[in-house]
């Protein structure tokens, strides 16, 4: 096996162009499991840990953040908790402290598993993925980046370099179901973001379909409720019937299967409960924010 260790972006892209079969590795929390169980025997590995810029995050034009593909979950929790609260909440549910010190959202994107905890917050806030190659840089909305279970638009000569996500303009939530209380792969999950400036609600169902799924109908419904009641301005509580209906519509949007971690029916049921609860929590926070103001 060839082990490639580029020292900067240019070297990395050239290496990937020269060795399209090379498997990129950063935290290794997915890749090393595959290697250890001999489920894959790549002819080459591309170690991205020595590229400085991949570990950095920063602000782009205004409130848009660019987060390098090598920023770890631990960094997101410690450094981006205020700016990206939904993603930070999701990051807290990933693995153990050791895994959070190694694993990255970039890895979640690379693996493209519908169970990736970092993905629903990206969907809920319309993130874009930055893809780099010797042919140039392109940006793809995350919902177009992931095509199916473990499938993405990434070409063989390309690397994920970063993702772009707006700094939170309102409350965000992330909830995840696992049969044990830590270190568990999501049976299903739900991410939600309120965008008061645009009067929008972003949602995403995790691990209950072939890809993370935005519950578009549920978003339209609840945006309608909020608009019709003038709730964005009045900040009055959303009534119980609307919360319940929102939960039902999210459940209806799920496309879950039965597998070893849980039944499809349970997944559908649970994302509905999570949707209702997270909306309630986020809306309460939105209301409290005024009270404070």
């Amino acid at each position: 096996m060839e082990f490639l260790q580029p020292l900067d972006r240019k070297e990395a892209l050239e290496a990937k162009a020269a060795h399209p079969e090379a498997v990129p590795i950063f935290g290794g929390t997915d890749v090393m499991v595959e290697l250890n169980f001999a489920r894959t025997r790549p002819r080459a590995m591309l170690d991205l840990t020595r590229i400085p810029e991949i570990r950095e995050w920063g602000e782009e034009d205004g409130r848009l953040l660019r987060v390098g593909a090598g920023v770890t979950y631990a960094q997101i929790i410690a450094e981006l908790g205020n700016k990206l609260p939904g993603l930070a909440m999701a990051s807290r549910t990933v693995g153990s402290p050791q895994i959070r010190n190694r694993g990255t959202v970039g890895g979640n994107l690379g693996t493209a598993s519908p169970a990736g905890d970092g993905l629903p917050p990206l969907y809920a806030s319309d993130a874009e993925v930055e893809i780099d190659s010797t042919e140039g840089v392109r940006r793809v909305p995350v919902s177009e980046f992931i095509l199916g279970p473990k499938r993405s638009v990434l070409k063989e000569n390309e690397l994920i370099s970063a993702f772009y996500l707006p700094e939170a303009e309102g409350p965000q939530q992330y909830s995840k179901i696992g049969p044990r209380n830590a270190m568990v792969i999501a049976v299903c999950s739900f991410g939600l973001a309120l965008h008061p400036e645009r009067e929008k609600v972003g949602t995403c169902i995790g691990s209950a379909g072939p890809t993370p799924i935005r519950a578009g109908d549920a978003e339209d419904f609840i945006e309608g409720v909020l608009e019709e009641g003038g709730l964005w301005e009045s900040r009055v509580a959303i009534d119980e019937a609307a919360l319940r209906r929102f939960g039902e519509m999210v459940a209806a949007a799920a496309r879950p299967i039965d597998d070893v971690r849980g039944t499809g029916e349970y997944r559908r049921h649970s994302v509905g409960v999570l949707a209702k609860r997270t909306l309630m929590w986020a809306w309460d926070e939105y209301r409290e924010a005024t009270d404070a103001a």
């Binding site: 997915d30 890749v31 489920r39 790549p42 473990k150 039944t263």
Partner: peptide, 28 residues
């Protein structure tokens, strides 16, 4: 919710370490 047994042995990618189907497809 009634217990239903899983439908089929998980495809690479639907359970555990096999979460990485994309790499699997690249297997030599």
């Amino acid at each position: 919710i009634a217990k239903k047994p899983p439908d089929a042995p998980p495809q690479p990618g639907s359970a555990g370490y096999a979460e990485l189907g994309r790499l699997d497809e690249r297997r030599e």
